[in-house]
Structure formats: structure tokens, C-alpha cells
Design a protein around this nucleic acid. Sequence first.
DNA 1: CACGGGCTGATTGCATCCACGATGAATACG
DNA 2: CGTATTCATCGTGGATGCAATCAGCCCGTG
Lengths: 235, 235
Amino acid sequence: MKIGKDGLYEDLKRRILTMELDPDTDLDEAGLCEQYGLSRTPVRETFRRLAGEGYVEIRENRGTRVSPMSHASLRQFFLVAPMVYAAIGRLAVQNFKPRQLGELGETQERFRAATEARDPMAMVIENNRFHEIIGEMSWNAYLRPSLGRLLIDHARIGHTFFRPRDAEMERRLRLSVEHHDGFITAIAGHDEETVVDLVFDHWELSRENMELFVAPQGLKADALVEAGRGSERTS
Amino acid sequence: MKIGKDGLYEDLKRRILTMELDPDTDLDEAGLCEQYGLSRTPVRETFRRLAGEGYVEIRENRGTRVSPMSHASLRQFFLVAPMVYAAIGRLAVQNFKPRQLGELGETQERFRAATEARDPMAMVIENNRFHEIIGEMSWNAYLRPSLGRLLIDHARIGHTFFRPRDAEMERRLRLSVEHHDGFITAIAGHDEETVVDLVFDHWELSRENMELFVAPQGLKADALVEAGRGSERTS
DNA sequence: CACGGGCTGATTGCATCCACGATGAATACG
DNA sequence: CGTATTCATCGTGGATGCAATCAGCCCGTG
């Protein structure tokens, strides 16, 4: 674990994206002060910053907690994500700087390494970073805030994507890696239409997985009652 | 001028939207503490909050300043604004709550009163609030951050819209008020297509005005040199 | 005369202290 | 025995003092 203010910021982001910190988890201000060797002031400022970016929410006199993921907001997520992703993709092709293409490639290599190492945490982070960089390439300060919000919940809803349970999920994961390669090639070639097509393919891939997560595979009605009394959470 | 933390927050937003505080203006932390009867801690937290919403930017060890408006970002503004506005409009029709419709009506009445009173400041604020409410009606936490950013610069770029200089601009302003009435009627009737049409009409109206602001009417090349040495600002 | 180094004032960031409000438990009352 | 009220404790918001960093200025040097 890193120390200092930036370490706290990065760690909290990582832990929220990887669901190490579940939605609605209360953050212990005093505890984090101690762990990162900070006083409460910089910790509170980090909370404000994360709140501005949508990672947490601050309730007056009632502390800071990880942003919730309600059923209602999930529907809104599926409605706008493809639109924003496609727009960001187009703008990225139009506006990217060569230097960013290199950064994208490096991130993709780390992502590929994470998949080969079967490291779900690293996969989540590198995949998220990959799409963040595409956002940066768009150089659009107006659309990026929404992209950021979407990527947070995309990582959280789709985290099971990176924990393949069967051959089919393995195949999808490999396909996802190939998509990323395709993004890099298409962006480098200023091929806007191919990027948009890839955006939708890539979206469809993770959308199907996320729907499984939101509405899990058809268990028999009594399966949970039999096996896990009291362990499941009511949403 | 209000006092307290909320007063500071509201006032800064208002002063930034109305261009009372120009882009790139440094904010005086100590001065604001004194004016609003606060210590530096809550002032700094307000800065963080405003930074998260896109009103200001904080540079490490170099203070807080009003968010800049560069030429490059302006182009990005024109590219994505219609898309986001239209999407928000659709979602608002689908998801609004009756209570919000009342709030929208009240804001529209204040906006109308401001136009009749020829009060540009109030017009900017109420117009901005009107579109914020439509954003709230969408109940889409993913798209609203971008809407917020767009509305900030929409108010700043288009502030001349509310200072009509000739009969044509007066006409446009009246048309704008009528558009708002149209929004209320169409949203109340769940008429999604009419709302989207209105969004584009409304957008076109202010777009034309904003383009005049960005690329002002064709002065003769020597006009500024003759008349206003040193008084014009370089953007 | 131009340029670089060092100093000083001002401003920001961080730590600590204090006050207020919320939460939970114990007790008194119905 | 159940419920409401009070009180104690904890945690958050705000104020203040101190340290670090940055900007501007002066002076020395080439």
C-alpha cells in the first residue's frame, strides 16, 4: 500500500473499481488517516475529489460512502453508455496525439499480461485505464465527465467478466483483448467507422455479460433458500 | 450577498455563470474567507466541490482559478452539446416526476419576469436553472455530469444572448421564452419527439448567437486599431 | 547590459484542536 | 413488556497555527 495523499486517492479508486469496497460501504476517515499517515484535512479533500468524480458520495454530517448502484441507475447506464462510448471513440480518432497512442499500447500490454496471468484485479484496472485513455484522446472536456461515471459502474457491474467460469467466458475475454488491439490499429489509422463498429461490438460483448450479472442465470427458485440462508444481500 | 458555506457556493456559481468572474480569474481564498465569515477549510472544500463540477480548476500550490474557455474546447462544445441535450430531453420525458414539472414552471415564470425586466443576470441564472431541472428530470446520473459542464460554458459563451442589442436579438429572446413554454407543454404531454425537435430549434437559436460571439461581426480590419487601442481583450 | 543565483514575502497545504450534530444504549414511563 | 426519552459517545465540520512551496526582486557576475 502506498502512502501519502496520491496513494490514498489511487488506492480508493482501485478498491472501488475492483469492488474490494462494495457500493454503500462507509469509509472510515480516521482509519484511513492512520493507514496513509495523513491528517484528516487531506483525507477529507480526497473524499471531495472522489465525490466530484462520482466514486463516493458525501452526506452532510453522516460521513462518506462508496457510490451506490441501484437498479434504477443500472437501466440508465445501459441507455446512455453506447451513445457516449461511440461519441468518445469518434472524437478520439479525430483528436488523439501520437504520444497517447503509445500510452494506449503500453496499457494494452499490461492488460494482456493480466489476462494471461489470470489476475482479475489487474484486468479491471488496466481495462478501465485503457478506456480512460481513449477518453483522454477525445480531448473533450464536456463528454469526459460522463465517460468517467460510466467507466466506474462499467467496472463494477462487469467485474465478473474478468473472472471467467467456463470456456465460453474465456473465449469472450480473449475476444475482448483482440478488440483492444483492434482499437489501437483503427485509431492509429484514423479509421473512424471501424472504431465505432468496434465500440458497439465491444459494448455488446460486455453488455451480455453484465446482463447475466444483473439478472443471474436461472437458478431454481429454491436454490438460494436451500443453500445460502442469510448470506445473500437484499438490494 | 449571503453568508456561510452555501452562500459562497451559490454566489461563486452565479458569478462564474454570469461572467462577473471571467475565465482564468484567480480566486482569492483569504478574501472570500473574510467576506463570507468562514475560515479557510470550508472555503477550500467549496473550491474542491466547484472543481468537481467544472466551475473552477485547482492547481497544486498555485491556487484556484475560474475554468478557462479556450478556442479548442469551444469546438468540442459545439460538437457534443446537441447530442447531450437531445438525449437529456428524451430521458426527461420518460422519467420526470410531476413535482419537477411544477418547479420547471416556476423557474420559467422567473425567467419570463427577468426578460420583461430586462435583467440579463437573472435571465442567465433562470435559463440555466431551467435546463438544469430538465437534467434532473432525466434522472440519469451518467449523463448529468456532462450536461452540467455544457451548461456552464453555454451560459458563459452565450451570455450576450441576454443583452439584446437590436430588434432581431429581441425577437430571438422572445422566441427563446416561447421555446421554454413549449418544453413544459411537451414534457407534460410525454411528447418525446416534440421535445427533441424543440431541443434542436432551441439549440440552433443560441448556436447562431454564440457563433457571433466567438467570431464577431465583420469589423473592418482597422476598426479596433482606430477606436479602441488597448481596451479590447485578446482571447 | 544580460543572465543566473539567492533571498524574501505571500500563498497554499497540512496538522491539531474545538464544537456541534448524529447515533445508539440505558432507563423511566405507560 | 413495549415504547419513548434522555444521555453518553463517537464522528464530522470548522477554526487556527505551522511548515513547505512558489513568485518576484535584488544583487552579483560574466
